[in-house]
């Protein structure tokens, strides 16, 4: 397994059809780390939620561009999903389960799912400027092999 830095960048129009493509492509890229099948399912879920957020909330099902950067560095996966949509006025509110501004049958569980599926995530958003969701996950196997703050051998 390589620990060298590697990345892919994807950009596509904000269409619901592209959500499936994005999560599959992200999982294929992620599989170069030693993720289990369950962990790859988690990555698929997190990317699906982040991209759906861009399509449904940021661009309100209208035109727009979604950009995803997936990066492997230092044995961990970092996925960033960015849009230039309307932005989230109150990120902390939006992170709470069941809080949503979208109508219809959207549950407002997107950030909750991302939080459960990834080791960590943060959200930067500017009203009228767009949103950037950065998500990190390290294979559990690697976490076990590198216990706590890896002490130096010297």
């Amino acid at each position: 397994m390589t620990h060298a830095s590697d990345y892919v960048i994807m950009e596509f129009p904000s269409l619901p059809e592209n959500v499936g493509f994005a999560r599959s492509a992200a999982a294929v890229f992620a599989s170069r780390l030693d993720f289990t099948l369950d962990e790859l399912d988690d990555i698929r879920m997190a990317v699906s939620e982040a991209v759906t957020n861009a399509v449904v909330h940021a661009y309100e099902n209208g035109p727009g561009i979604v950009r995803i950067t997936a990066e492997v560095a230092g044995g961990q996966l970092v996925i960033t999903v960015e849009d230039r949509g309307k932005g989230i006025p109150d990120v902390e509110w939006a992170k709470q389960p069941a809080n949503t501004t979208a109508p219809d049958e959207h549950l407002g569980l997107g950030f909750h799912f991302i939080g459960v599926c990834m080791d960590g995530y943060d959200v930067e958003s500017r009203v009228g400027g767009g949103t950037r969701i950065r998500m990190v996950k390290r294979p559990a196997q690697a976490k076990r092999q590198e216990p706590a703050a890896s002490s130096s051998s010297q």
């Binding site: 999560r23 399912d41 698929r44 879920m45 699906s48 939620e49 759906t52 449904v56 219809d104 049958e105 959207h106 549950l107 569980l109 997107g110 909750h112 799912f113």
Partner: peptide
């Protein structure tokens, strides 16, 4: 093979 929160929302609907 896959359901996300949008899928769950549609089922709850």
């Amino acid at each position: 093979t896959f359901v996300d929160s949008s899928g769950i929302g549609a089922i709850l609907g």
